[in-house]
């Protein structure tokens, strides 16, 4: 079913909105959740929460990209759960990308609320648009979808070594970019 029709079902408060979403996007969302949580049972619960969140946000939301909208919800829920689980001990799956990207963090910029995050997200979007499609994909596959270098290599056809180099370079460039943009530096 087309995304617009699925969204319409949400607006009509029809139960089949969830069924159709599940049919079309289950694997998409499960993939993201599993990459972060590394556990099928947790990922399934995360998926249920995603559907619930989607149900509660449409209406009033009418996303232009349903797949990205669901991906964001899933990722946020999975990360929240991941952080809850790893408050004491670290799980390996999602922690690696988080540790990696922290290289790009600008220490003088404090993220205090959502508006700061939105500002930062806007800058990252601009930063990504300055790169080639391939590099953007590599970056987002790693830090949005939490893919491993191996998965990215398989997807893009680049060697794993190349993927790691691209990511390393982009992290450095991101740090410079954020610093130059003077994010409250």
């Amino acid at each position: 079913m087309e995304d617009e029709k699925i969204i319409e079902l949400y607006w009509l408060r029809s139960e089949s909105a969830i069924t159709e979403t599940d049919k079309k996007y289950r694997e998409h969302c499960m993939y993201i959740a599993r990459n972060i949580l590394n556990d099928i049972s947790d990922s399934e619960e995360c998926l249920n929460d995603t559907y619930l969140a989607a149900w509660n946000s449409m209406p009033p939301e009418r996303p232009s990209h349903l797949s990205a909208f669901l991906a964001k919800i899933t990722k946020n829920i999975a990360l929240k759960r991941f952080r809850y689980y790893t408050a004491d001990k670290r799980k390996k799956s999602a922690q690696v990308p988080i540790d990696e990207i922290s290289e790009s963090a600008v220490s003088t910029f404090d993220v205090e609320d959502t508006s700061d995050l939105k500002e930062l997200a806007g800058l990252i979007s601009d930063f990504l648009r300055k790169h080639s499609k391939e590099k953007r994909v590599v970056f987002l596959r790693r830090y949005f979808f939490f893919d491993s270098s191996e998965q990215i290599s398989e997807l893009t056809g680049l060697s794993e070594d190349n993927v790691r180099k691209i990511l390393s370079r982009m992290r450095k460039q991101l740090k410079e970019y954020l610093t130059k943009r003077g994010v409250k530096v």
Binding site: A105, L117, L120, A121, R129, V137
Partner: peptide, 21 residues
């Protein structure tokens, strides 16, 4: 700012970029 903040910010990048990936 730390890695978690950046990951949260990456979660909020424009939809078309996520769609593209």
């Amino acid at each position: 700012m730390n890695g978690d903040d950046l990951i949260d910010a990456v979660s909020m990048v424009d939809d078309d970029l996520i769609e593209e990936a």
